[in-house]
Design a protein around this nucleic acid. Structure first.
Length: 595
RNA sequence: CGGGAUGUGGCUCAGCUUGGUAGAGCGCUGCGUUCGGGACGCAGAGGCCGCUGGUUCAAAUCCAGUCAUCCCGACCA
């Protein structure tokens, strides 16, 4: 039997009004429903209900990790600086790493992640290829001194994360675990009730690595995603989608006077053509300071991340540098550039023979600038930030844009840490080899916010049953009498005996308050016990996610109870039986969330 | 770190321009009336007006500094 939570004793202070400093739905509702409170910027305390949700999420993650033979451990949050010096990240990580000293002046940091610690943990014991592969994980608080913590749990300075690390003797073995992890992540998202997408992501500075982010789709998400009906999806930072520029109908190179025209919008309006018929120029420099002109279709933006990937040490030039190089901002083009300026252009422009570009002279543009005749592109590359309608690299259909919350990422690390930190094993030939590693993270507290973003309405949260702080809320509309309350107490007890998590609103509150707060807190199923119902020998059910209401008679309820007692999964089976009796569609929703 | 804004009972906010004994609603306590979708009446408790300094007979209000919070940007697991 599970414990009945009595609302009369529950510490869950609700707020009628929207807190001033919360501006996304999940943040507002988690505060309003009494699930958490802010302790300082980017630091939150979880109250009993919120903490129950966190534990539910953790357990789902734990089960899926255990199911793929990852083993749970627990490492310290406080870490010695030596290990970070060894990996090189004490200097590389930047101010986001929370550093401190102990009384002896010994350097420490609060762990933002645990690659160093885990590598150190295994390097002395894990010595033979026979012991590989090995996957370890933990669920604990992480610390990152974010420049700008915001959006409640979405980007906080202390947050709960599951981090897993795998060790391998071969790339094939790493790939196997990586695939297992990917599958587990998909199952985790499904069980959390998240509408999610695995998306291609930036592999960061670690070249050649394989990585995939798991995003919960939500407008409040910080990441912009491009996705296609064929299933392909990518973070806009990396999405390699081709724009489709259009050709301006002029094949002769003509210099035209364009007084006052400096922006693409002005140019397109001046020529009465779409922006996609113009070519936008940006000028940067490489690591040696050599100038490079980059060209993209006029209706697209240069993606600086992509430019950096194409050109070693790339940085855009400042206005002063442009002036010094004799380049008129707003009128730069590929014809008649100063000596030594290399031309890099977006691959999509390869098919456009004649360009509309600046004439490198204020107030003038060229039309009909022909590739090969009037200028030559040195390098073709993927340079654009993806836009709605660009071409999917997988199937060629137009992609659409949406926003996502990154709730997880899987990553093939390779040997970066094992090499830096001398973590090696002996292979079949007795030869020392660095471990091939993978790492895999799930933002547990961030998942909580993502779930609320996806499962809420004007009345409050509608938790998926898998993570709800309790499955059922029993609402006696009268307390202290000998008619309604005894029935509510009995129902709560019987459900609790079945293993159903029950909260009983035994407060002396008016019905309106109880209804409003039950909706706000988001219990998946409400069972209302009122004078009217008891008189008719029936209970009222309301499924929070659909809002559907129905009644079931005491007899039908008893039948559902008996059915559930015989079945192995009491919660689901109670609901299933209740569904058979009455509210099929509605309860099916709750039930499907329970698996 | 740049730009913008805000700090007044637990919460949401008014008052500040034009200095003169601190306000409302919600929440909280008590009593009464209510009681199927965040009730009503009466009576209460609760505030160094973020902090420090200045101007002034007098500062929530004007000035300076400082701290904190939020938003945008830069930055970034």
């Amino acid at each position: 039997m599970t414990q009945i939570m009595r609302m009369s004793a529950l510490y869950a202070p609700t707020l009628k009004e929207v807190p001033n400093d919360a501006d996304i739905v999940s943040h507002q509702l988690l505060l309003r429903a009494g699930m958490m409170r802010k302790s300082a910027t980017g630091l939150y305390s979880f109250l009993p209900l919120g903490w129950r949700v966190i534990k539910k999420i953790e357990n789902i993650v734990r089960q899926e990790m255990d199911a793929i033979d990852a083993q749970e451990i627990m490492m310290p949050e406080l870490q010695p600086s030596e290990l970070w010096h060894e990996s090189g990240r004490w200097d590389d990580y930047g101010p986001e790493l929370m550093r401190m000293e102990d009384r002896h002046g010994h350097g420490l940091c609060l762990g933002p992640t645990h690659e160093e610690l885990i590598t150190d943990l295994v390097r002395n014991e894990l010595k033979s290829y026979k012991q590989l592969p090995l996957t370890l994980y933990q669920i604990q608080s992480k610390f990152r001194d974010e420049i700008r913590p915001r959006f409640g749990l979405m980007r906080s300075r202390e947050f709960i994360m599951k981090d897993a690390y795998s060790f391998h003797a071969s790339q094939e073995s790493l790939q196997q675990t990586y695939d297992d992890m990917s599958d587990a992540y998909a199952r985790i998202c499904e069980r959390l009730g998240l509408d999610f997408r695995p998306v291609q992501a930036d592999s960061g500075q670690i070249g050649g690595s394989v990585t995939c982010e798991y995003h919960a789709l939500a407008d409040a998400g910080e990441a912009e995603l491009a996705s296609c009906t064929c299933g392909w999806a990518a973070n806009s930072e990396v999405a390699a989608c081709l724009p489709h520029p259009t050709e301006y109908a002029e094949t002769e190179l003509k210099k035209i006077e364009t007084p006052g025209v400096h922006t693409i919008a002005e140019l397109a309006a001046f020529l009465n053509c779409p922006e996609s018929s113009t070519v936008k120029a940006m000028v940067g420099k490489d690591a040696e300071g050599n100038p490079i002109a980059l060209f993209v279709p006029g209706d697209h933006e240069l993606n600086e991340l992509k430019a950096e990937r194409t050109i070693d040490g790339f940085a855009l030039m400042s206005d002063e540098e442009l002036e010094a190089a004799g380049l008129p901002k707003g009128s730069i083009g590929c014809v008649g550039l100063p000596q030594g300026v290399r031309i890099v252009a977006d691959s999509s422009l390869q098919g456009i023979a004649h360009w509309v570009v600046g004439a490198n002279e204020d107030g003038f543009h060229y039309v009909g600038a022909e590739q090969g005749r009037d200028f030559t592109v040195d390098v073709w590359a993927d340079l654009c930030t993806v836009r709605e309608g660009d071409t999917c690299p997988e199937c060629g259909k137009p992609v659409s844009m949406c926003r996502g919350i990154e709730v997880g990422q899987v990553f093939q690390l390779g040997t970066k840490y094992s090499q830096n930190m001398g973590a090696t094993y002996l292979d079949e030939n007795g030869k020392e080899q660095p471990f091939i590693m993978g790492c895999y993270g799930v933002g547990v507290s961030r998942c909580m916010a993502a779930i609320v973003e996806q499962h809420s309405d004007e009345y409050g949260i509608a938790w998926p049953a898998s993570v709800a702080p309790a499955h059922v809320c029993v609402l006696p509309l009268v307390v202290g009498d000998d008619v309604v309350q005894p029935v509510a107490e009995r129902v709560a007890r019987e459900l609790a005996e079945l293993g159903v998590e029950v909260v009983l609103d035994d407060r002396k509150e008016r019905p309106g308050v109880k209804f409003a707060e039950a909706d706000l807190m988001g219990w998946p199923l409400q069972i209302v016990v009122g004078k009217r119902g008891v008189a008719n020998q029936e209970l009222e059910l309301k499924v929070r996610s659909t809002g559907e209401k129905s009644t079931i008679s005491f007899d039908e309820y008893a039948e559902a109870l008996a059915f559930a007692k015989r079945a192995s999964k009491p919660i689901a089976s109670f609901l299933e039986q209740a569904a058979n009796v009455r509210m099929e569609a509605a309860v099916t929703t709750v039930r499907s969330q329970m698996k």
